[in-house]
C-alpha cells in the first residue's frame, strides 16, 4: 500500500505536479499514462524519494515521507526506498557486476543478508525471470530484455511491497512485452503493489487494474482501463489516446 496526498513539485518555479492525491493498493497494478511532459516520471520518482517535492506526503504503510525528509537524504527516505523497488527505463544495471552480483548487491550490503542466503535467493529470482542460465553474464553481455529482467530481479531481491516501473516496454519488441506481462502478472498475483508508467495501451489494457491519466501535473481521469481507454470522459484524454492509437498502430507495422 502506497499513497500520496496533495503532492506538489516545482521545477524552477514551474509546477510539474499539482496536488496529486492517489492510493495504490496491494495486488493492484496501476498504469500511469498521459502526454509527454505530463509529470508521470516525476510522480513515480517521488514515490520512492528519488525526487524531492515541495508539498504533500508520500505514505508507505505507516511510514510517511515529507518534503524535508527527502531533502535530508536520511534514514527515513532510505527505509522507504528499501520497501519501494524501482525499475528504470534504461535499467541502470551495475556495469561492474554480473547478473547475479547485481541481484545480491543490495540484500548483502544494505540489508546485511548473509552471502549464502543472498546467492540462493538471487538464483531463485533469476530463475523466476527466466535468466538462470545467464547469472555470470555482465550487463554489457545481456540483451535489453534480459537486462530489464535482471533489473526487476534486482528490485525484487529487496523484497519490496511496491514495485515502480518507468516505461518498461519502451525498449522491448512486441514479443518481449508478452514475457514482461507474464512476470508482472505473477508478481501482482503475489500481492505486490505495481505502478507503471507506460505509453503502450496494449500493455495497460492487459495488465492494469486501473489507469491514471496525468496531464499538466494533475490527474485528469482515472478508472479501469476498459472504460478509460474505450470511452474517456475528458477531452484531453481523448486527444491523447487518438494520438496514442496512431502511434501504437505504427509501431505494429500497420
Amino acid at each position: 500500500m502506497i499513497e500520496v496526498e496533495k503532492l506538489s513539485k516545482r521545477y524552477d518555479g514551474r509546477l510539474v505536479l499539482d496536488g496529486i492525491d492517489a492510493t495504490f493498493a496491494p495486488g493492484e497494478m496501476t498504469a500511469l499514462v498521459g502526454p509527454s511532459g505530463g509529470g508521470k516520471s516525476t510522480l513515480l520518482r517521488c514515490l520512492n524519494g528519488l525526487e524531492s517535492f515541495d508539498a504533500g506526503v508520500v505514505r508507505v504503510g505507516s511510514d510517511t515521507l515529507a518534503p524535508g525528509d527527502v531533502r535530508a537524504q536520511g534514514e527515513k527516505v532510505r527505509s522507504i526506498r528499501r520497501r519501494v523497488g524501482f525499475v528504470f527505463q534504461q535499467w541502470h544495471l551495475f556495469a561492474h557486476r554480473t547478473a547475479l552480483g547485481n541481484v545480491t548487491e543490495a540484500p548483502m550490503h544494505v540489508k546485511g543478508v548473509g552471502r549464502k542466503e543472498a546467492l540462493e535467493r538471487g538464483r531463485e529470482l533469476l530463475e523466476k525471470v527466466g535468466l538462470s542460465h545467464r547469472e555470470d553474464a555482465y550487463p554489457s553481455e545481456l540483451s535489453g530484455g534480459e537486462q530489464q529482467r535482471v533489473a526487476i530481479a534486482r528490485a525484487l531481491a529487496m523484497e519490496p511491497e511496491v514495485l515502480l516501473l518507468d516505461e518498461p516496454t519502451s525498449a522491448l519488441d512486441p514479443e518481449r512485452v508478452g514475457g514482461l506481462i507474464d512476470v508482472l502478472e505473477q508478481l501482482r498475483s503475489e500481492g505486490l503493489t505495481l505502478v507503471s508508467v507506460t505509453h503502450e495501451m496494449r500493455f495497460a489494457q492487459e495488465l492494469a487494474s486501473r489507469v491514471l491519466v496525468l496531464y499538466g501535473g494533475r490527474i485528469i481521469e482515472e478508472g479501469p482501463p476498459d472504460r478509460v481507454l474505450a470511452s474517456p470522459h475528458h477531452e484531453r484524454t481523448r486527444a491523447f489516446l487518438g494520438l496514442g492509437r496512431v502511434a501504437a498502430l505504427r509501431t505494429m507495422g500497420a
Binding site: 523497488g85 541502470h92 556495469a95
Partner: peptide, 15 residues
C-alpha cells in the same frame, strides 16, 4: 553514468 548512482540510491543505499 549518473544512472548508476540513482540505481544504488533507489535500492536504499546510503551515499
Amino acid at each position: 553514468p549518473r544512472g548508476q548512482l540513482e540505481a544504488a540510491m533507489a535500492l536504499g543505499m546510503p551515499l
